[in-house]
């Protein structure tokens, strides 16, 4: 299975990316995206930290083994959009 790296963007600039050097094995980019949403949900609910000012401004910049951007998952995507 390919390995995906869940780099966490918590503010703009180079200091605002928590680089994932270890990664997780997942079937494909869609599975990586689903995993990222689970992670985001858990982190918002359970992680108290001073480095993140606004969880809703965070995103996972998911890269593949070659270092290329596979997909981006915004933390805001865990909230269903309200119509109207």
């Amino acid at each position: 299975m390919p390995r995906y790296y869940f780099n966490l963007r918590h503010r703009p600039g180079p200091g605002g990316l928590a680089v994932d050097e270890e990664g997780d094995e997942l079937a494909d980019p869609e599975a990586a995206r689903a995993h990222a949403l689970l992670l985001a949900r858990d982190m918002i609910a359970r992680t108290r930290t001073e480095i993140v000012r606004d969880w809703m401004a965070c995103a996972f910049e998911i890269t593949d083994e070659a270092g290329a951007l596979a997909t981006t998952v915004r933390f805001g995507e865990i909230v269903p959009e309200i119509e109207g």
Binding site: L8, H10, A18, D20, D42, M43, R46, T49, I51, F60
Partner: peptide, 10 residues
């Protein structure tokens, strides 16, 4: 007792 991403943030 946390996610790896949270450990990386810390």
């Amino acid at each position: 007792g946390t996610q790896r991403s949270s450990a990386t943030l810390a």
